[in-house]
Amino acid sequence: MKKENTIIVALAVLAAVIAATWLILVAPALTGNEINMTKGVTQQSADHFDLHMIVLWICVVIGIAVFTVMFTSIVLHRKSRGHKAAKFSHSTKAEIIWTIIPVLILVVMAVPATTALVRMEDSSGAEMTVKITGFQWRWKYEYLDQDISFISSLDSSSNAARQLNSGVTPESVDNYLLDVDHPLVLPVGRKIKFLITADDVIHSWWVPALGWKRDAIPGFVNEAWTNIEKPGTYRGQCAELCGKDHGFMPIVVIALAEEEFDSWVNEQLAGKTQSDQQVTVR
């Protein structure tokens, strides 16, 4: 009789806890806002998304289990219902169980976590290299194989709108704070190595769709790599506090199909010789 009662209450509480979980983890997406990590456009971003979802689900299940037991107890074991307190104060068996089970869960999590990490850190076999340097508050890109380099800063319309009390509504600016004058153009389907460093303070180069961020540190050259699978425009931001305009040094990557990328390179080189000639003429 009493046992049945406990089970019925536990089921009702379980339903309520699941409903609450749905409400905070799923329902907010119905507003049309993005609430989850991007799947991105690289193997790494897909790996990290999967890993994130696995761990999230494990956490959700643990949370639901703990909260169901706890709220069942809160409903049933109250003085106002005349419940008398039990006397027990420990159980070695229970404590061993809830030490061992979490350890096992962690082992299960550690396997994909290790694989993804090993894969992310393997930058061997890159076909081209881009050096990225962070400055206060812009990025410099150098294509080491193509002999192209330029500086990329916040585009002027965002920059005008972002001044204190500029009177311009951010919504009226295209890609407010996420647009630059000279985007980084990259080919799809090619393994690209990045050499990341900084010239003044620490910055961090982050494009969520590529799946990682990597700190740009003066005096250090960090390595990272990508292999973009889909053409498109991908936006990111500096992710390490670097001074007053830290919020205003976005990153834009334009991924082009191989041939388009090659012609972009030729255009750049042609433009460059032209301006070099102009300099000599003058």
Binding site: V69, M70, S73, I74, A86, A94, E95, T99, L106, A110
Partner: peptide, 26 residues
């Protein structure tokens, strides 16, 4: 870091077990 969640979990489970079969007021 993952290992830290084991003793942390023990704490939480023990708190729930403290409440379990108690005579609670709020």
């Amino acid at each position: 870091t993952m290992l830290i969640s084991v003793p942390t979990g023990v704490k939480v489970f023990n708190w729930v077990a403290t409440m379990w079969q108690g005579s609670m007021t709020f």
